[in-house]
């Protein structure tokens, strides 16, 4: 944990910089979603746009977690707790989804409606 005044002043500079990066990424997200020129995949919203949007969001979230919440110099125990939670959250999401991508409820590319 950075404790000396100089280390803290340096951190403050870092926080300001990351703050600006976050602003920029937010504008980027809106731009990708708004301008047709940046519309990847097919026209309109499709899985490509979802991936890009979520990727930017994940990047921003990681910046906040690692730098603002100083996970980068936190003790191992904390790392494990947080990562464990994220792991189980992903399990929650993936296994739910897995439960549906199964022959009974899954018909090729599109899920069968009304099977939920």
């Amino acid at each position: 944990m950075a404790d000396s005044p100089e280390a803290i002043k340096k951190s403050v500079k870092l926080y300001s910089f990351i703050g600006l990066v976050l602003f920029g990424c937010t504008l980027l997200t809106v731009a990708v979603a708004t301008f047709p020129a940046l519309d990847f995949g097919g026209h309109g919203f499709d899985y490509m746009d979802a991936i890009i949007g979520l990727a930017i969001a994940t990047f921003k979230a990681s910046l906040v977690a690692v730098i603002f919440m100083h996970l980068n110099h936190e003790k191992k125990a904390i790392y494990w707790i947080f990562l464990g939670a994220i792991f189980f959250a992903i399990c929650l999401i993936l296994l739910f989804a897995l439960a549906f991508f199964d022959p009974i409820t899954f018909d090729g590319l599109m899920p069968k409606f009304g099977q939920g």
Binding site: L95, L98, A99, D102, P103, I104, T105, F106, Q115
Partner: peptide, 14 residues
């Protein structure tokens, strides 16, 4: 957890 839900129509893989 889904062993409480075997009869919900889940497919064989899950």
């Amino acid at each position: 957890w889904a062993h409480h839900m075997y009869l919900t129509g889940m497919g064989s893989s899950v």
